[in-house]
Amino acid sequence: MADNNPFPGENNTGHIWDENLRELKNPPPRWWMIGLWASILWVAGYTILYPSWPVGQEPTQGILGWSQIKEYQSGLEKVAAKRAEFEDQIKGMTVNEIIADPGLTQYTLASAKVLFGDNCSACHGSGGQGNPGYPVLADDDWLYGGTTGKIAETIKGGRQGAMTAHQSILEPDELDTLANWVVQMSETLGKGGSEEGWALFRTKGCTACHGQAANGILAEMPNGDVVTVGAANLTDGIWRFEPGGFESAKHTIMYGVNQPGVAETRNAVMPAFGSTDTGKLSEEDIKKLVVYVHELGGGK
């Protein structure tokens, strides 16, 4: 092929295709060669200074001793140093004292947001708005009371309410009367409710949990705490189990809450986050979450 080169004197290899396509032997542009050698030098320098080549289970360390883990740890130390001023104050303060300090409250809310997202949002929603079957934390309706003491008690020890299944206790017409009464109470914010419903509410033992006024409160303490077993307030428009209404109320009355052996019972269990068995959250973490939850719902 080279003997029949139709381009004599041209700096080509003699490989010709389709009559005029050929392979030339021109050198690369100077700028390209400069870039090539510069990149080679850069790689050589990088491998000397930084971790690079795998040797067994670890890479070469580099003469600078830099690593991503060290940089990460350095960042954590800087963040911890900035937080230390606030964290040291929080350790020696009660929840109410923290809430009384606007600056510390803002810091605690920002700090606890991650704690809430990691431990609470799966059930209660990222903003405390609640998920189906779980209580809303962004309102002022509290099953066990909304003081900081009660919120701390709830987070530490968890909650597992109970309501008796009345399917075998009440007659069908009594079930309907009570379910309708619950709806009437919700619609009138406790100002209505049929006489028949009130009579059943009192004679069938409902007051033992829901209170004489049907608001879920058995007694109020001087410090603002309430005595309650977690029974729902029947005098507001908030439904513990959605979607609410007659059928929902009847279902709860019939099958109860957390009743062993009752297949259709409502399930309502909150785990204990301060348990010594689980050790899930520290005292300081719980303190921050109490502030966060209290401020979400305008706790009492």
Rank of each mutant, 00 (worst) to 15 (best):
Q259N: 15
G75N: 05
D88F: 10
Q89G: 13
A84G: 08
V95G: 00
E174Y: 06
V226Y: 03
E196V: 06
R22V: 07
P260H: 13
N223D: 13
N26W: 11
T164W: 11
C120M: 07
L115K: 00
G35P: 05
M163P: 15
E195D: 01
T108G: 03
M270C: 10
V136D: 13
P271N: 05
K300V: 04
P29D: 04
Q184I: 12
F241S: 02
S111P: 05
Y144W: 12
T94S: 15
W17F: 05
P132L: 05
M185E: 02
S67H: 02
A122I: 11
W32S: 06
N4V: 08
D139H: 14
Q61R: 13
T228D: 11
W239I: 06
H15E: 13
V55W: 06
I98F: 03
L170H: 03
P51C: 09
K70Y: 12
K113C: 02
N131F: 05
M93G: 07
N131G: 15
D285P: 14
L281E: 00
V229W: 04
I16W: 07
L218V: 13
P132A: 06
W32P: 02
S126W: 01
W42Y: 14
G197Q: 02
A122N: 04
W66Y: 04
T252C: 06
F246C: 12
N223K: 01
E187N: 06
T13D: 07
K156A: 01
M185P: 05
R202D: 09
G62P: 04
V182E: 09
L76M: 11
E10D: 08
E295W: 07
Q129H: 07
G224W: 06
I155W: 09
W31P: 03
Q106F: 09
D173E: 11
G133S: 01
L41T: 14
S282I: 11
Q167H: 12
E220P: 04
C123P: 00
G35A: 15
E10V: 15
W142T: 08
M33P: 00
I63G: 02
S194P: 02
A272F: 07
V183Y: 00
K82C: 00
S186P: 06
I151M: 06
E295L: 12
G65K: 04
E87Q: 00
L24P: 08
Y144N: 12
P27D: 05
E242T: 08
S248Q: 07
S52H: 03
N267M: 10
R159W: 05
C120W: 02
M185T: 05
H124K: 05
N180E: 14
S111Q: 13
A214L: 12
L218W: 01
M93V: 13
K156M: 03
Y72N: 15
